[in-house]
Amino acid sequence: MTWEMFVFLFLAASALMSALWVISAKEIVHSVIGMATCFIAIACLFIMLNAEFVAIVQLLVYVGAVTIVILFGIMLTKREIMESERK
């Protein structure tokens, strides 16, 4: 197994695991963290394919826009903690 293969498998596994985390996390902001991890892993995969520009644009556009996803996640969803505190 070459080093490139090893790095590829690591990045692919982290992208897949964080993608799984996105759909399984209980807290919505945690799934957004998973989403950012997934995007960064994919950007690293692009770098391994010698496509630096696409990787940087991936960082700039997707990881930057994750902030907006958090904003929507906070503003448009209900948090259980708040309700349990009220009781």
Partner: peptide
């Protein structure tokens, strides 16, 4: 580093994610 200037700006734009995360959590 190829496209180093763009990379610097891209790394600049990750910060609001961390700040919002810090503020929320």
């Amino acid at each position: 580093v190829s496209a180093g200037a763009l990379f610097a700006l891209a790394a600049f734009s990750i910060a609001p994610f961390a700040i919002l995360l810090a503020g929320w959590s």
